[in-house]
């Protein structure tokens, strides 16, 4: 899975900035996408391209349980969020709804990947290749249940053993 990186070098990017509370009444996915990241980066909607990735620090998606957050990002074209760690509801919403991949990375990847870098995520090898910089980083493997739900294409397609 190849794409370019939009980097926010900060921790605790919360759901209030990913999709502000006033838009919670909206359930049209395309319209939600036009407000993605509005609380932090008003230019996001104009710069994001189909297939891009977001890179960020610790505790990405903390705050409310609004599924609007992964929906707004995914319908903006974001295929994966790479972060040092994730808040739990954002993580499970992203996976169970099959909106995007939440990829846990280490400090090395976080510091070395820059805005605009082209990277290639290979979840079968748990590896991230930085094509721009010719570097390779490890990603944290998905836990067994998460891996199975992702492979199935979301919770509704997953058949428990």
């Amino acid at each position: 899975m190849k794409g370019n990186v939009i980097k926010y070098q900060r921790d605790n990017i919360d759901t209030d900035v990913i999709i502000p509370g006033e838009y919670l009444k909206i359930h049209d996915y395309a319209e939600l996408a036009t407000h993605a990241m509005e609380g932090l980066d008003p230019d996001f909607h104009s710069k994001v391209k189909e297939g891009d990735f977001i890179l960020s620090g610790k505790n990405f998606g903390c705050g409310s349980s609004r599924e609007h957050a992964p929906i707004a990002l995914s319908h903006s074209g974001i295929k994966a969020v790479l972060a040092l760690s994730f808040a739990r509801i954002f993580y499970r919403n992203a996976v169970d709804g099959a909106f995007l991949l939440p990829i846990e990375i280490d400090e090395n990847a976080y510091q070395n990947i820059s805005e605009g870098d082209e990277i290639d995520i290979d979840v079968s090898l748990n590896e991230i290749k930085n094509i721009t910089k010719n570097q390779t980083y490890k990603m944290k493997p998905f836990s067994e249940i998460i891996g199975k739900i992702i492979k199935a294409g979301g919770l509704f397609k997953y058949k428990p053993d």
Binding site: S65, R92, D96, G97
Partner: peptide, 22 residues
């Protein structure tokens, strides 16, 4: 379907918030 579902754990229940799909 709300993150502050945690509140109700004060009654001795396992109370946990989830998203729409869940």
């Amino acid at each position: 379907g709300d993150s502050h579902t945690n509140t109700t754990g004060a009654l001795g229940a396992f109370a946990c918030g989830l998203g729409h799909t869940d």
